[in-house]
Write a protein that binds this DNA or RNA. Structure first.
Lengths: 192, 192
DNA sequence: GACGACATTCTAGCGACGCTAGACATCCTG
DNA sequence: CAGGATGTCTAGCGTCGCTAGAATGTCGTC
């Protein structure tokens, strides 16, 4: 009786995640404009209305994908930071990892940082993985740096600008390394 | 005979511009998602197919709006740069003017720098107004600075990141001034 | 095992989108 | 004034996100 319900709920949760990963794979393979509710439904082998029993609409699916992405990005940044100790080197590593993430998963990155969203950033209801991403940048600055949050915001913004302008072909994708080196050299908090 | 043709062409050019400004006004009033070919046609008081006799499609209309925008932005930046002489102050003024433009005309800014485009940036076929925008940043650095183009790219990217993240609510819109000050302090080429 | 009650899933369709074919009107030319 | 080019419009195609209501399947109770 209750075991059956449990199985049902388990299956439902699996299907929930299936939809999210299918959306993400489709987006990464053909871009978000190819992610239509029809194609997505076909891909998960259910009809369209099933999607709406899991998510309030297409936006909610994108949002779910993006939150998955925040978790992965946070882990990716953290790994980079811990692998390269020392404040200056850590910052460089984290920034490089960030751009790497953006260029290797452009569709996921778009869902997270470009597409319209109502996810709250820098707010009490901010999803923890998102906060964790930001904190990786903050942690690259000295704890006694009173403006490290501001520094992190600016660094993050600059990286985002670089990522998004090169992804849309507005700045040439080569010399990405040069741009990053210059940015770090100027923005790290350990002068010299 | 030819006078008639001239009048026709004149009227046609007027209507061409009318479409562009109508699209822009509609976008600035209600966002680009409200700019549909039907609403745009209604607004210019012609039927939909007329739009397609002027532009190859909706993308081309957005592109035309964005090119108008590049001209305005170039003039805006130039004015700021010339009003505030001295390399360091000029850079500050240009950057402030850039962010001002982005926040005051968010829809226009989106057409220029966010929406998918096939306008060539940093290329032989780059529209002159666009090149002029970029040159305003370059001109803020000393001519003997061999890497001033790189500097300009990075500064522009950083500003773009700030503009777009604050427009989409991903960083709080206040303390925009602080962020800018910090950025300039670190990225200007006259150290100290 | 048969049967209502309930939940789940699907078929079919709504209104709006970008875009276009073909009918219609209008104007210049001979 | 006729005929052809030019310009404009009506109507419609295929697709989109989304949903109402039918159909299907599953469950606890007799």
């Amino acid at each position: 009786m209750s075991a059956i319900k449990e199985r049902r709920e388990r299956e439902r949760a699996q299907r929930h995640q299936l939809i999210i990963t299918a959306a993400r794979e489709l987006a990464e393979a053909e871009g978000w404009e190819a992610v239509t509710t029809r194609r997505l439904a076909e891909r998960v082998e259910y009809s369209q209305p099933v999607l709406y029993s899991h998510f309030s609409g297409k936006d909610a699916i994108v949002r779910a994908v993006s939150i998955d992405g925040f978790g992965e990005l946070a882990a990716h940044l953290r790994r980079a930071r811990l692998a390269d100790p020392g404040p200056r080197r850590a910052l460089h590593a984290v920034c490089r990892a960030y751009l790497e993430f953006a260029t290797e998963r452009p569709a996921l990155y778009q869902a997270m940082f470009v597409m319209p969203t109502d996810v709250k950033f820098a707010h009490a209801e901010t999803p923890p993985p998102l906060r964790a991403c930001f904190d990786e940048f903050v942690s690259c600055f000295r704890p006694d740096n009173a403006r490290r949050e501001l520094f992190a915001e600016v660094i993050w913004s600059a990286l985002h600008g670089i990522a998004v302008l090169s992804d849309s072909g507005r700045i040439p994708p080569d010399s990405q390394g040069e741009r990053l080196d210059f940015l770090i050299a100027r923005l790290a908090d350990t002068p010299g």
